Lab assay of single mutants.
Amino acid sequence: TGYYDVLGVKPDASDNELKKAYRKMALKFHPDKNPDGAEQFKQISQAYEVLSDEKKRQIYDQ
């Protein structure tokens, strides 16, 4: 599964769309709200870390 799929956004998503999707998913799977969501929360955080950084995103998109 790709990072875009993890966040539920298209590859041409804007920074604002990425942030909005990340916040929505992070709230849904945060371990405090969803004890079984810890692994998914890590994936969401990693996806956002890469896609929100312009240089990392360019490398990922290659």
Rank of each mutant, 00 (worst) to 15 (best):
L51E: 02
F29I: 03
E17T: 02
K56S: 10
F41K: 01
V50P: 03
H30C: 13
H30R: 07
E49V: 07
P31W: 07
N16K: 14
A47T: 00
V6F: 05
D12S: 11
Y3V: 02
Y4H: 05
Y60C: 04
Y48E: 01
A21M: 00
L18I: 15
D5V: 09
I44A: 04
D15K: 13
Y3H: 03
S45H: 11
K24E: 15
A26R: 09
D36F: 11
K56E: 05
L51P: 04
A38C: 11
F41C: 06
D15L: 15
Y22D: 04
K24Q: 11
D15H: 15
K24P: 03
P11C: 12
E17R: 01
I59R: 10
K24R: 11
E39A: 09
Q43V: 13
A26L: 15
L7D: 02
G8Q: 06
Q43K: 14
E49K: 13
E54T: 14
G2Q: 10
V50I: 11
M25F: 06
S45C: 14
K55E: 09
D53T: 07
F29Q: 04
D12N: 12
Q40I: 14
Q40R: 13
S14K: 06
K28M: 10
Q62V: 08
A13V: 12
D12M: 02
V9C: 09
K10I: 03
L18T: 02
E17K: 05
N34Y: 09
F29W: 08
K19V: 07
R23M: 15
Q62E: 10
E17M: 06
D61E: 05
K19H: 10
Y3Q: 00
I44R: 00
S52R: 12
E39S: 07
Y22C: 07
N16V: 11
D15R: 13
Q62I: 10
V50C: 08
Q58D: 10
E39Y: 09
P35F: 03
K19G: 06
L7T: 03
Y22Q: 03
K42M: 12
L18K: 00
L51Q: 04
R57E: 04
K33M: 11
Q58A: 14
F41P: 00
D32Q: 09
E54C: 13
D15V: 14
A47C: 04
I44Y: 01
L27R: 11
M25R: 02
D32I: 08
E54W: 14
A21K: 02
I44N: 01
T1S: 08
K56G: 04
D53H: 06
D32H: 06
Y22S: 00
M25S: 06
K20F: 08
E17P: 00
N16Q: 14
L27V: 10
G8K: 07
V50E: 03
Y4Q: 00
A21W: 03
Y4A: 00
V50H: 06
K42G: 05
F41S: 02
Q58H: 11
K55F: 09
G8T: 02
F29A: 02
K55W: 05
K42V: 07
A13G: 01
P31K: 07
T1A: 10
Y48P: 01
K19L: 14
P11V: 07
L51G: 02
Y3G: 01
R57L: 03
Y60P: 01
A47D: 03
D32S: 13
D36E: 12
N34H: 09
Y22K: 02
Y22R: 03
V50W: 07
L51T: 03
D15S: 14
D36Q: 12
K19P: 01
R23H: 14
Y60W: 03
Q43E: 13
V50Q: 03
Y48Q: 01
K42N: 08
P35W: 04
Q58P: 06
A21Q: 05
L18A: 02
E49P: 01
K28L: 13
Y60A: 03
D5P: 04
K55C: 12
N16C: 15
Y60F: 03
V6W: 07
P31N: 10
V50M: 05
K33F: 15
S14T: 14
G8H: 06
Q46N: 08
L7C: 06
Q46I: 15
K19N: 06
Q43S: 07
H30K: 05
I59T: 09
K28S: 06
K33H: 14
G2I: 11
E17V: 03
Q46S: 06
R57I: 03
K10W: 06
S52H: 08
Y4K: 01
G37Y: 15
K55L: 09
K10E: 07
K10S: 12
